[in-house]
Amino acid sequence: MGNVTPNSWTGDGPGVILVAVDGSTTSVRAAAWAGGLARRQGSRLLCVYVAARSALAGLALTVGAEMNLESELDQVAADLGEELRASAESYHVPMEYVVLAGDPVTEIVRLADEVKVDAVVVGASTQAGHRLVGSVAVRLVRMGRWPVTVVP
């Protein structure tokens, strides 16, 4: 995390906008929305991809399958990072991309607090089970630490 600089913004509007991405349609929309906001506000964009490896690794039946899963997650993170960097560069938005492993809510909260972000943007969950357990978006909103925008 040492390469992510804390927020020292003193202007009007958000200085750092954190957007959580995972490659889903709603997270891509969230990244586009956050990028547009960052461009209009002159903000920095902090994109975070959290690989929930522990939950996925439990599904792997063999060590080889677990290693393949890890490499697939790494490739998704790398491809997503390239796309985000290209978009941010084309719109002249300063952007940092961070890849973390663990529970998405825990890692997003830790990073947001560490960097002292002004806003968090996430895509809405499309999984039915999240209505009962609570999606990443709902859990972040309930924490009430920063404004959270949920993009459909």
Rank of each mutant, 00 (worst) to 15 (best):
T106G: 02
S135R: 10
S135M: 13
P147N: 02
M67D: 15
D103R: 15
G11E: 04
V115Y: 00
T5N: 01
A101P: 00
R110D: 10
P14T: 12
E96M: 00
N7R: 14
G81I: 00
A60Q: 11
W9E: 02
R29Y: 01
R44Y: 04
L73G: 08
V105T: 12
G102K: 13
G15K: 08
G81Q: 05
T62N: 10
S8D: 15
I108F: 12
L18N: 07
R44Q: 13
A78G: 04
V48W: 01
G13S: 15
V21W: 04
A20F: 10
A78V: 09
A60N: 08
Q127Y: 15
E66P: 04
A65R: 14
L132H: 10
S90R: 01
S87T: 02
E70I: 04
V148W: 06
V98H: 06
N7M: 11
V138C: 07
A57S: 13
R39F: 11
V4Y: 06
P14G: 14
L80G: 13
V16C: 12
G64E: 15
A31C: 01
V115C: 02
T10S: 15
N68S: 12
L56C: 05
G129D: 14
W146V: 05
A31K: 03
V133G: 07
C47T: 10
L56T: 03
L69E: 06
T10C: 11
P147Q: 01
A101L: 05
W146Q: 07
G144M: 12
R40Q: 11
G23V: 05
W33G: 04
A20P: 00
S24W: 15
R39G: 00
V76H: 12
A86G: 03
